[in-house]
Design a protein around this nucleic acid. Structure first.
Lengths: 215, 215, 215, 215
DNA sequence: GATGAATGAGGTTTCATTCAT
DNA sequence: GATGAATGAAACCTCATTCAT
């Protein structure tokens, strides 16, 4: 009753106070990352000004630079942070070996597709795609911690499917990334054609159907 | 103060036309577009300076501005021009109705895939993807003159395939863009992972195989 | 919340005084001055950051500002302090009236020259020379407490020398600062040409020799 | 009578025009160097803002950067230019071998001393002294093109004087820079004690008198 | 017609200083 | 008393754009 949401108010209201606080640091960090991610998403790297990030986070410019020494560092920091949650998602293998490979694929990948939109993974990916050439190290990290594991898993499944005869072609063994192409397509598509969005799950379902629903 | 040398711009070249030497102009245009395209490809919109375009084209900055009044205009002009050749490619339907849909698809789309790399269509697409949000009108043009016709054609083929029983699923009818996802994947992939390039045709072949080579 | 420990600042040390532990304070002062002097020497006024001074002194920025309210105050405080030891050195007149003026000059000034390097007087002088225009009050103090007394003493000696016939010229009476020029030269020289240092004493000796070893 | 100082007016009046001119470039260059030198003299390197230089020169910031890509480059450029005139002065040896070494020294060095003030050589020297540590390359140039030749010449004269018996001491042979110390003293002195300026020539005369007028 | 010198808004970054804890 | 997170004025530098020649 008294003022339980006291600090929340302050965060919103752009507190002019400059005091220190033992745990405020973490909150400031969070505010920065959140603001920066949002702005980088909509404006890209070049299109985002440091002062906008600061204002969006309710901070002064200088504060930003206490946490990230350059705009590049901010960008990388934000993306690496965002990448962390992606990796966490991936670490829920959740692969029940019961059922056909088709089932397993659906179970394993579809949730990720569905998650692309709800979480900001699609935005993250779009950012990496768009700004990748400027941040090769970021791309390398992404490749190592996200892409390679996923491709390996898909390849393994593809081999099983081939072994079990559920798939005739070896194409998926050689090009496991094909399985991700519907997701990629939806990300790019939705980034360009704002008035005609595609559901990644729907696209993925269609893709699976195309592959398996034959005979 | 007086204006007696009104026709001074004619003096340079042939007397006939009133405009600036049309041949020279066209060549300069070409040089600009070529230089700008190349630079936009490697540096993106923000990363390309007008003076670099001018120098690359062997011109002065002022001259560049005679042809394109702003950097935006230059970018759009360049992309629209590049788009033109894409459209030309598309207008060779070349669809021989003989053979299975699979054959037709291969015949129709695979050359385009193979062409992605050789011509600079992949680069063009990457540019549109990257800078699209900043140039919505460009995206609209691309959608209208390239994407829609292609998707329509694919859809038509997909309907035929379904009708003929060559494909069981209706997925491709609803989501014809799926047929383009291997190409898109290779474009994005090659833009990010410079040390492990994917051949669009190979990816497309694998995709077709995955769909059709069943049981 | 409660305030019963109003005297908490006493608790740290002896009960008697009310002020902040005087010993601690003095030590902190010393640390600050030492750190700041060192940094001002190598970086000049503009080139020295307050945070570096604080860190070098093992303090927080805020603490630094408790002792010196501005960077200017710190600079002046440091230099005035350093000036103090110079003055002390000067107050050992040590002028034994026995022997020639040449002897007395050597005895009186040479130790000071030799001291220039060992102590940081050369650095101090260089700082005053370099930053003087920004701190006129400092220069005035230096002029009053160091320069004038020294010049007076030299002048007195020069008059004696003239009276005794040890020097023919009256130049040194009118321009007593000439006697300091070898020291100044070495300070400036050593500040510029780090790889070819000059010993102030050697230069001073040469100067004296030049003046007196004639006939 | 008509308007002979026509262009001078424009220079003063901060011409807003942006036009190009084949020879205006040199004038702009001159304006920049002049303005920058003046400001660097009074404010030092750190104390001079690029925008002030631009305004003082009647130019926009950007124009400054067309001519000098960084503040450091501007500083070095200005000093090197100023150094040029110093070197020119030195190249009038003007040493008439008639008369005593004392005469020659007076003839050779005194004009330079007298020139220190009138031209801006004293200011130049003060700048080099003050900012030297930040611009070692500049110091090296100065050492090579100005200092070494001068010291060599002095040394040669000192040897002659010794050989002729005009000087008993070898001090000047080993430390030829002593001959410059009165000049240096006056430069430093005048920079610090604005209300009690010393004439370099007077100081130099006194110095010479001290050395030669003996017995 | 072509040119490039000139411009200045706008962006990044630094750092002296404050003050809540 | 001490601390360092927060602040924002101010400095450097870039580059799209203009226009006199």
């Amino acid at each position: 009753m008294e003022n339980e949401c006291n600090h929340e108010h302050q965060a919103q209201k752009q507190r002019r106070g400059r005091g220190l606080s033992p745990a405020k640091t973490a909150e400031t960090q969070t505010r920065i990352v959140k603001a920066a991610f949002q702005l980088f998403i909509s404006g890209g790297f070049e299109g985002t000004r440091m002062i906008d990030v600061a204002q969006q986070a309710g901070l002064g410019k200088g504060t930003l630079y206490r946490y990230y020494p350059t705009k590049e560092a901010l960008f990388e920091g934000v993306l690496v942070q965002a990448l962390g949650s992606t990796v966490q998602t991936l670490q829920n293998p959740n692969l029940e070996p019961t059922g056909s490979i088709e089932e397993i694929l659906r179970q394993a990948i579809r949730p990720f597709m569905a998650d692309l939109q709800k979480s900001h993974k699609a935005d993250l990916l779009r950012l990496i795609i768009t700004e990748g050439p400027r941040f090769p190290s970021l791309v390398a990290v992404y490749q190592r911690v996200v892409l390679e594991p996923v491709l390996s898993a898909i390849q393994t499944l593809a081999k099983q499917a081939k072994a079990r005869g559920e798939i005739k072609s070896e194409a998926l063994i050689e090009y496991p990334m094909l399985m991700l192409s519907p997701g990629l397509l939806s990300i790019i598509w939705n980034g360009l054609f704002l008035d005609r969005q595609l559901q990644p799950e729907a696209l993925f379902d269609a893709f699976i159907e195309l592959i398996f629903v034959q005979s």
